[in-house]
């Protein structure tokens, strides 16, 4: 979808992870370099840190949240993206992201859109709230 096709109030929602596995947390630790044992080491997380299980990296939930924006409006690029981490994400969680267009404006370089983002778990609890601002797709910039 292109930016020009968005209208205020449009929304889109998608499951971004189904039954989050400990293996995916290990993959994310390796890819991101965040080896905090709270995210991959259940012995440490339960016996030292006092949690029931390991907890997912906040940045993983943020990355999963971004998939809805880049997958839905795939012919635009982000100019801003921010989140607040509201509740823990655990192994076994299924996360759904909903994105709603809050404004479409004409910027100096073409149309711009603001999206409100909300990521919830299988119990309907919001784990991340956030926003994204979209601009026209990069073309040859950065080549």
């Amino acid at each position: 979808m292109r930016l020009e096709e968005l209208t205020e109030g449009d929304s889109h929602s998608q499951v971004v992870v189904h039954d989050l596995t400990r293996t995916q947390l290990v993959m994310y630790a390796g890819a991101s370099g965040d080896f905090n044992p709270l995210h991959t080491d259940e012995v440490y997380a339960t016996q030292v840190a006092g949690y029931d299980k390991i907890i997912a990296h906040g940045q993983l939930t943020m990355g999963l949240t971004a998939k809805v924006v880049t997958g839905w409006v795939d012919e635009a690029d982000l100019s801003a993206f921010g989140v607040r981490f509201k509740n823990q994400v655990w192994p076994g969680d299924t996360l759904t992201v909903s994105a709603t267009v809050t404004s479409v404006t004409k910027g100096p370089h073409g149309p711009e859109a603001e999206l409100a983002l909300s990521t919830t778990n299988q119990d309907g609890v919001e784990v991340v709230s956030g926003y994204a601002r979209l601009r026209e797709a990069w073309t040859a910039e950065g080549r």
Partner: peptide
């Protein structure tokens, strides 16, 4: 500070609590 033979120990910086990520913002 993660587990090996034993369960590990709290990271020196955070005492008995936990260091958590509260917000993250990117401008591209």
């Amino acid at each position: 500070h993660g587990s090996g033979r034993g369960p590990g120990f709290p990271p020196p910086a955070s005492g008995s609590g936990t260091s958590l990520h509260a917000e993250q913002h990117y401008e591209y």
